[in-house]
């Protein structure tokens, strides 16, 4: 949100395998991303896009392989790793009993972000006029925008977004594209799952079809 640049950093994973419900979802997966880059995860349903994002966030655990942030294994300090990322998953984590502003302000305050950033994020995603309304009356698309605004106020260099374009209308899509570009310009990193187009011109695709257990066996 503010103009300040993030220090140059590198986030990488080596030889990752992950199991879910007794099934190997992907294996032998490696990636590397540096400041200012964006990776889009591609692959059919069940190829492990969500799992990989949760793995990158340190929420899921890999059967094998490691994740490094600037040479430090993220497993050594999961709490610090969480602090340097903003995560928007399938579930929007919006509390119905609180207003839109209270929802975002809570997360901003946990991250130590200034209150002005909250207003800025509300403006960016076009939910400023809803800010004093309890979140229970919001539509799915509006809740999703609240979740994206939370990522925007996190002040974190790494953004992990799971299907961020879902349920968004054209205006919100443009706002998202602008926000993501500005984040990259500041030296941020973005990893997002999408089965639509690449969305950002500079995006690099990581195709999970290459790392399916069947593909490797064959």
């Amino acid at each position: 949100m503010n103009g300040q640049k993030f220090p140059a950093a590198e986030f990488s994973g080596a030889d990752l395998s992950c199991r879910r419900g007794g099934r190997t979802v992907f294996t032998g997966l490696s990636f590397r991303i540096v400041s200012g880059e964006v990776i889009v995860l591609r692959g059919p349903n069940g190829s492990g896009k969500t799992t990989l994002l949760r793995l990158m966030a340190g929420l899921a655990r890999a059967v094998s392989g490691t994740l490094h942030w600037n040479d430090a294994d993220i497993a050594d300090d999961l709490c610090a790793h969480g602090a340097r990322l903003g995560f928007a998953g399938h579930r929007d984590a919006v509390k119905s009993a609180q207003t839109v502003r209270e929802n975002i302000a809570f997360w901003a305050s946990l991250r130590g972000a200034a209150p002005t950033h909250v207003d800025q994020a509300l403006n960016t995603f076009g939910i400023r006029h809803l800010s004093d309304i309890p979140a229970r009356v919001l539509s799915a698309g509006q809740r999703h925008r609240v979740a994206l605004a939370r990522v925007a106020v996190s002040g974190a260099p790494l953004w992990l977004l799971d299907e961020p374009t879902n349920t968004l209308d054209d205006a919100a899509l443009n706002a998202l594209r602008d926000t993501l570009s500005a984040h990259l310009q500041r030296g941020g990193m973005i990893v997002m799952a999408s089965h639509g187009d690449l969305f950002l011109p500079q995006a690099r695709a990581l195709d999970l079809r290459q790392t399916q257990p069947a593909a490797i066996a064959a």
Binding site: A57, L59, C79, G82, A83, H90, A93, V94, K95, L110
Partner: peptide, 16 residues
Amino acid sequence: YEDGTLDQLMLSGTEP
């Protein structure tokens, strides 16, 4: 857990 808040709390930089 159901609405995803727990994910966010774990990632908020606050010690679990």
